[in-house]
Design a protein around this nucleic acid. Sequence first.
DNA 1: TTCTCACGTGAATCTGTAG
DNA 2: ACTACAGATTCACGTGAGA
Lengths: 363, 363
Amino acid sequence: MGAIATNTVILGDCIESLKKLPSKSVDLVFADPPYNLQLGGDLLRPDNSKVDAVDDEWDRFDSFETYDRFTTEWMSECQRVLKDDGAMWVIGSYHNIFRVGAILQTLGFWILNDIVWRKSNPMPNFKGTRFTNAHETLIWAAKGRGSRRYTFNYDAMKMANDDLQMRSDWTFPLCTGEERLKDENGVKAHPTQKPEALLRRVILASTKPGDIILDPFFGTGTTGAAAKQLGRKYIGLEREEQYATLARERIAKVIPLTEADLETMGSKRQEPRIPFGQIVESGMLRPGDTLYCSKGERSARVRADGSLVIGDMAGSIHKVGAMIQSAPACNGWTYWHFKTDKGLAPIDVLRMKMRSSMAQLAA
Amino acid sequence: MGAIATNTVILGDCIESLKKLPSKSVDLVFADPPYNLQLGGDLLRPDNSKVDAVDDEWDRFDSFETYDRFTTEWMSECQRVLKDDGAMWVIGSYHNIFRVGAILQTLGFWILNDIVWRKSNPMPNFKGTRFTNAHETLIWAAKGRGSRRYTFNYDAMKMANDDLQMRSDWTFPLCTGEERLKDENGVKAHPTQKPEALLRRVILASTKPGDIILDPFFGTGTTGAAAKQLGRKYIGLEREEQYATLARERIAKVIPLTEADLETMGSKRQEPRIPFGQIVESGMLRPGDTLYCSKGERSARVRADGSLVIGDMAGSIHKVGAMIQSAPACNGWTYWHFKTDKGLAPIDVLRMKMRSSMAQLAA
DNA sequence: TTCTCACGTGAATCTGTAG
DNA sequence: ACTACAGATTCACGTGAGA
């Protein structure tokens, strides 16, 4: 086996390019394949502006069967190209991730974790028809069931998480602002650019310095940029010349980090927000229970969704508290009280209790 | 089709029992199928013979295939039993959720969301070989692609989340303590008992009071307990007699909420429609009155039939609102305002007044 | 200079009913 | 099947203009 060319972007069809790569030559694959979104018509926000949808030709497939065939092809080539101790990451959404995961298992990959990327700033569901789609899923899998020697930098991950084991749910913002590549008109250069922070965590967790990372859907080269920063090598495959060019220019500007830089990259944690509805869902309060103001003169009834009712007024603890006092605003957590053996206690006590039971959670 | 028996636990093989249920008879399916292929015993072939545990490399495929066949069978029966506007939830971990999701799509179910249950107190990864497996995944899917009338209580969910859209990541603790069912020796009665809070959110989000919820893997009856509490009906299928017995005892102790406590924030889409003409007919506004946009720069005149006029444009409050803004659509109720002592107020205020006076008439 | 506020936008399977 | 139209619907941030 000759030396493989690294730190390069290969222009061309991903499967064709994969076939030319030698077997057992890369340490990690990171793949961000088309999601096969199957969008309908236009989507308008409440302010009537249009959502810039992903309608690119590369994301359109005739059927699930076509998508599955495509997935099977690129993935089995990746499996061949991986070293025996290598591993693969694939990112996707509910549109494609289940097919991706099933195929990967069927091919013999051995799933190590599924990871949830919680977006701190997702796009809302404008029409109020579903839950806000606020996460994507990554699958981390070893080449085969027997591969016990995959790389996992346990201590680096623990360190990055304030000395707690890194969990399978990660919180990062979307790629926006400075980091988001723009064309000459200031329009986003690629519709699905991933945040570098996400890639850095993937790479720090599952590769060693000097490892070779293959990205078969390179796009604008986030994987390459993060790899270079962290002292790893990359091979990017990309079909669209404009993306490949952008990626090369982008990566050229990246300055590799020093050891010292890396140490300061720990993630910050913050107190999790507890909605009042969750207090009710948890059973700490029950629908039908009564809440009182501190003097006990005023009362309201709790409903199953966390709303309060007084007469024909209904709304959140804050809104109803404000209405009843004819005040512009009200902190419902301190205004409303519940009955205990020792008299009235503010519901904020319940929130603190809930917080402490969730103390382990990085927000 | 005769009335279906509800609030009952049916003992027996899940697929056999499903086949006896009438088509299009339930509103929601909640399924917590067996997760792990390797445990054996849990898995039955379609002919009810047991699958032997297999370690052999070459047998791996056979084992996935068996799981897939089992999944396809129970799931297509559920699809048949669901009403056309019904929906299904399935919960799983990375061991099985990808196969479950792919099969569900292939059967024609239409995924609405994938939901991440973040565990606030997961079991750590003791060996430090992977990320702490701190979540499970739920898939929420409509019966088919065309099913647009599935139930989603958007406003109740928004209320439960402090007036923000409910996201696709939910945080709940594991089922522990009092809630966890124990046998006579104090040992947990079921290995995978789900928290009631999780089920309550599922039920509150996607059913109406009185709906029928089918759980084909009933276990110790968390679905039934939550359903009874929330004024929904349940049908539980369970193979193991000891679980079925435990479930019946558990559910018998549950005290349902009263109708008043079950009430949640209602959807605006379901409120009775008031034509604008009726506001004019009632005298709340008079023909010839002027309406303004919120800033007061634009104005239109009200005509006797409830149409608006600006210059030579005339039409409904919505159409004229859209035209004047050159927008594709407009909600006239919130766009147009009328003059009061205290300044401009949206005409939606008048609609709310009208609605409440109509409600009093009905009562 | 610093703060405030309006505006733009992100992998989105995004309405319901009457005729 | 289709059309027409009433009317319901958004969160977190980054940027840049203006105070």
